[in-house]
Every structure is written in C-alpha cells, then in structure tokens.
C-alpha cells in the first residue's frame, strides 16, 4: 500500500503506519492501545508496551446502556498512564473496527491527540513484528477530562427521527442481509437483539469493511473512498450525515473514514443503532 501521505486523505496525520509504530515503541509521549473484539487476543500477545482498552469493561457504563462518564474516563486515562499531552495510537483486530470505536469514544471527551495504526493488528502480525505477553505498567497519570460532549459526533434516536424527516443522509454500514432485513428471517441465526429487520428509510447501504483493502487491512485511498461514499452513496463532505450499524461499533469505523480520511464536517454516530431502532414502537422501517 502506498504511503499514507500520498493517498489523498483530508487528515493523513490521524493514521500511522506499522513502521512508524515500530519506531516509537520507546517514545514516552506515545501510548499504544490495543482494542479488540476478541477478549483473548491481547493477552495472547500484543505490541510491546501496548495497553489494552476493552470496549465492555473500559468504555461502557456497567449499568446503563451508555458510555463511561467523565470520572470513568479520567480513571481509565490514569490507569493507562495517559496525560493530556500523550498521543494515543489505537490498533486492533477486525480491521481496526474496535480500535476506531475506542478512538470515537475518546473524541467524546476531546482527547484529540489520537491516531490509528493503519492495517491494525493483522498487518503487524503478517509483517512478523514482535508481540509480547508482558503487560506493561505505567505510572498513574493526572488527567482532568472535560464532560463528555454528545452533541457533535453522537446522535440519539429523536435526532435520527428529525434527520429522517428533513431527508438528510444516513448511512447503514451493516451487511447487505442486515440492511434488507433478511438476516432476521433466517431461523438458524441466534437472536439478533432486534424485533424487526430492515433499515432506516432512505439510508444508503455501505458496509463498513468496503473502506478496507482486504489483503492487508489498510484503508483504501482517498479516491477509492470518495468513489464509494460520494459517487455511489451520494453523500458529500458538506452534508450532515448520520451513520449507524447494530450497536454503533462498525459505524464508528465509517465515522472515522468520513470524518478523518474524507474530511466530512458533520458526521454523527447513532450508537443506539439497529438494536434500538429495530425495537422501537412505531418508527418507520424500510426493507
């Protein structure tokens, strides 16, 4: 894959290569963070010096369906030894799906010194780079976080309803079968957590992984991404866009692509997503 700077991204500085990470393993201003879907991966081996941020234990409220609050975020940052001046670099499994989810949650608290390692864990592994089972320990930091800001990059169901009425663009990033509602009708599948299948009316279908080169997990070039989102899905950088999936994790990946790689100004992630919409009484659904 070409150099990140040559790929035509709006904000190339949010991506770093595996080479870059390898040359910053001892850099005290950098904290490498692994976020995975599979809970066994980090303990089985990770980039030397990387800490784990787990989406369920670290990023979610343990009781309510919501993200951690300011105090929880401060405690997390203290635990992983991150200060306001530390640049966090996320990577993970599943083409950085969970890494971009963690990145998005960090942005709710305004920690904008944040990057993603292009290609994620699979690229690091394929390149034969070192992994260790040693879990690092960093001195607890002082971290004063802002209150979580849900207004800029997060959308709630009433806002989605308004968005729908205003005929503003939505992007459904789930698989085609989830989009059409077919999946809920396949009896061999376990319960999906939603009573109705289909999609929010008018939403364009762009499965999240289309933004990725399947061979090495890196992001596609700016031109390829523009073709996918601007030509095919008909959304433009000036649009007010809401993205969603099942619980907001896959759509955080698309949020990352639209916001950082294509420079869209206003993209919000509807984390209630289909597990909320597909269970709501009386909301419109399209198949």
């Amino acid at each position: 894959m070409s150099n990140i700077e040559s790929r035509g991204y709006a904000r190339p500085e949010v991506l770093v290569s595996t080479d870059w990470v390898a040359s910053h393993l001892q850099d005290p201003s950098i904290r490498i963070i692994e976020s995975n879907e599979d809970p066994l991966l980090y303990p089985s081996g990770h980039i030397p010096g990387a800490v784990e941020v787990d989406w369920t234990r670290d990023l979610n409220d343990p009781l309510r369906r919501d993200y951690l609050g300011r105090e929880g975020f401060e405690a997390l940052m203290r635990r992983i030894g991150v200060t306001k001046d530390t640049t966090v670099v996320f990577y993970g499994d599943r083409n950085n799906w969970w890494a971009t989810y963690a990145y998005w949650v960090f942005q709710l608290f305004g920690h904008d010194k944040a990057k993603v390692m292009d290609g994620g864990r699979i690229k690091w592994e394929k390149e034969g780079r070192p992994l260790t089972r040693d879990v690092p320990s960093y001195p607890a930091s002082e971290y004063r976080a802002s209150e979580r800001d849900d207004t800029k990059i997060r959308a709630f169901r009433d806002q989605v309803l308004e968005h729908l009425k205003s005929r503003k663009p939505l992007v459904d990033v789930r698989s085609p079968d989830e989009y059409t509602g077919k999946k809920l009708h396949m009896p061999e599948y376990p319960n999906e957590g939603a009573l109705r299948g289909g999609h929010i009316p008018g939403a364009a279908s762009v499965p999240w992984a289309k933004a990725i080169n399947p061979d090495d997990g890196t992001f596609k070039t700016g031109d390829e991404l523009r073709s996918l989102y601007e030509n095919d899905a008909k959304i433009k950088p000036g649009d007010d866009v809401i993205v969603y999936c099942r619980i907001g994790e896959r759509s955080s990946h698309t949020w990352f692509v639209l916001t950082n790689l294509l420079g869209f100004d206003k993209v919000r992630n509807y984390d209630g997503s289909w597990t909320e919409w597909g269970n709501l009484v009386g909301v419109p659904i399209e198949r």
Binding site: P39, W55, T56, E188, P190, E192, G193
Partner: peptide, 15 residues
C-alpha cells in the same frame, strides 16, 4: 463480556 457478534459466532458453533 462478549460482543454480540462474538457471542453469535460462538453460539453458532455450539448450535
């Protein structure tokens, strides 16, 4: 503490 996708896949193996 499993994602829904991970739960579904592992439960699919058992099923």
């Amino acid at each position: 503490e499993l994602s829904m996708g991970k739960s579904m896949g592992l439960m699919g193996m058992v099923g």
